[in-house]
Design a protein around this nucleic acid. Sequence first.
DNA 1: TAATAATGTGTGTATTTTACACATTAAACG
DNA 2: CGTTTAATGTGTAAAATACACACATTATTA
Lengths: 243, 243
Amino acid sequence: MENEVKNPGFKTLQKIQSEVKSSNTIALSVDCVIFGFDENKLKVLLIRSDLKKYQGKWSLLGDLMRSEEDLDDAAYRILKQRTGLNDVYLEQVHTFGKINRHPAGRVITVTYCSLINIRHHKLNILDNELHWHDIDNLADLAFDHQEIFDTCYTRLQKRVQEHPLGFNLLPKKFSLRDLQNLYEAILGFKMDRRNFRKKFFTMDFLIDLKEIEQNVPHRPGKLYEFNYSKYEKRKKKWAGIDF
Amino acid sequence: MENEVKNPGFKTLQKIQSEVKSSNTIALSVDCVIFGFDENKLKVLLIRSDLKKYQGKWSLLGDLMRSEEDLDDAAYRILKQRTGLNDVYLEQVHTFGKINRHPAGRVITVTYCSLINIRHHKLNILDNELHWHDIDNLADLAFDHQEIFDTCYTRLQKRVQEHPLGFNLLPKKFSLRDLQNLYEAILGFKMDRRNFRKKFFTMDFLIDLKEIEQNVPHRPGKLYEFNYSKYEKRKKKWAGIDF
DNA sequence: TAATAATGTGTGTATTTTACACATTAAACG
DNA sequence: CGTTTAATGTGTAAAATACACACATTATTA
């Protein structure tokens, strides 16, 4: 199989089938939904399905787990194998386990998601198998990957409203317009510019750099930096996941 | 094994070990964290561990999954087998997969949780193996079950603040004091009585029954009923899980 | 130098949250 | 039978937050 040669770490359909059907057990996989932000658009990283039956379809980044690794470690390994990404925080979202969800046999998949700045991370792209898709323009995905995507996207939108994430997603220096574009892309609706600014100023996580944008075709905006130390202190008050 | 005889559906330690270690695969289990409310206290349903090594310790309700059932179905089956409960809504919470989390071998567990009124459900108690424990008084649990419990408890507290659940937990007719006791037991802190009432009245899910409590050693409170139809209509606005 | 298209700032209103005080009712008790 | 007790039931004001909206400012560009 061509994939086998190029990506020796990956399991092919045959491998999955033999592994799954030989015993009466259940195979476990991990799928990663990597959201990316670039040019004011929210995207998701997909890979061309290596299963013949799903030729031409796109899939999430996934592979079978190994029995000698922690579940979370498996997620990071698989992401790294598939994309070269290794400095990305992954959050577990949900486990999908319908009987016939995978054509190769009984495979239950634990899904993780993340959100990164596309330009900050170098992908290890093999033969254009990897591609950033606009999230509002997803062609049909393989298996139940649309459902998985939807679940992760909903989770992402919720997280964004609870935590002021989204700072690693912008360049170090950013304008408030940049920040608002980010939030609007993720949440999918427009917000009032004035109230948006007020909200973030009162949160007090922004450092005014006393600089302005360069080379914009209009009045340049002020540039800000994220105040990580203040955020870290405040964070403890928000119980739970820190994305 | 005595458990084998009494509960033929359950897997014993030996079974798990043989199943897990024979192949190089990973076994999958489901654990259920069933919260119960009774006498104004929040409790959790535990079972005596059937593993010798963990003798005397208490465990969550769990068992191995079967390969011919949906993941969600497995959760309901296992809950039913262990407790007799079959009309309980289960919500998936998290999947735990550290390598050494289970003494019998490589077992990854998908956890579900629920919240029920203890008096509304009849448990199928075998030899006192099942027991409702006060949540603030948990002795040491087997394996990583304390961590699992903590995760589910945090999730429950979050859900309670987002959705007006907790109505199936009270008798059909209840006083506002009953309702507040429920919320305080789950959230773990006291609330202002007047503001609590205001909050629920403006939510508009309560039907004033024009009745009062009987046999209370003080001024009786009014009794209310939950307005399910209004709740159902409103519910659509709250995306997601309905517990 | 005027038109354009952004940014930057402020104000008022409505809504929600929080804090807090007093009258009312039934039971318990002398 | 009246008084005490310990709850319930109700209202009001301040504070914080969300929402709607208007105008001056600054580079660009035409």
